[in-house]
Design a protein around this nucleic acid. Sequence first.
DNA 1: TGCTTTTCCTACTAAATAAGTCGGCTTAGC
DNA 2: GCTAAGCCGACTTATTTAGTAGGAAAAGCA
Lengths: 130, 130
Amino acid sequence: MRLSARTQYALRAAVELAAAPPGPVPAERIATAQDIPRRFLDNILLQLRRAGLINSQRGPDGGYWLARPAEEISLADIVVVVEGVSQENERFPGVAGPLAGVWTALREFEQTTLTEITLAHIASGSLPPL
Amino acid sequence: MRLSARTQYALRAAVELAAAPPGPVPAERIATAQDIPRRFLDNILLQLRRAGLINSQRGPDGGYWLARPAEEISLADIVVVVEGVSQENERFPGVAGPLAGVWTALREFEQTTLTEITLAHIASGSLPPL
DNA sequence: TGCTTTTCCTACTAAATAAGTCGGCTTAGC
DNA sequence: GCTAAGCCGACTTATTTAGTAGGAAAAGCA
């Protein structure tokens, strides 16, 4: 389970939005709270908005907010957007063939887990039973 | 679960050794059977030998063989050697703190799975219940 | 001895990916 | 028209990945 810095930042930013009171949150505040390089964060938030996960508003008192309730956004939603969709299953020559099944099983568990956990879970600190 | 080509090759080479009849297997044969670039494979086998997972013999009829029975070498053994030991748990600022627990859970599952599956399982094609 | 087969070893390089930066434009509100 | 935001593509730099290169050393055999 290797996650790029970009993906980690995206998740942390999203959690920050989930935990904020209703209304726009400026990028600057997210950057400070989560210790994320400001310009890089801009970049990431843009991607999340284009994917329809968050909304934005410009101008004074502008900022970002979740496009859906935090209960309805899973970690997988964000990971998929930022990390891109996972690679197809490869085939392994000869006697190594059964390795494929192992990777499939691991990936499935990973995906199931990330799909079950929502931003609300993280923000509230109460994880569902794994 | 992102695995580098190097790690995949190492696993496939090890499985090939596990499936071979007793005695040294030359790198050339592994490279052909598993379609791995020859010089790169040399490099990887060297690393596995230094880690004590395989043994080698030079000269005509030389080659490589597993240092222990295939039942006693787990996929994790190989992954750890090639991929290096996993990074320490990071901490996440503020409200994103609980994310750490998710990564820990995922990593533990991954590690448990890879530890339970041995080269013998793969070579025989009979995976243990996951 | 010398030839062949095979491993051993360090170092190098090219390509891809990741991480972040820059400059400036656009929009909204006062 | 000033200020506080977001919007956007392009650019730069660092790291990692995936190999390659060149040869040295050992083992067996004739």
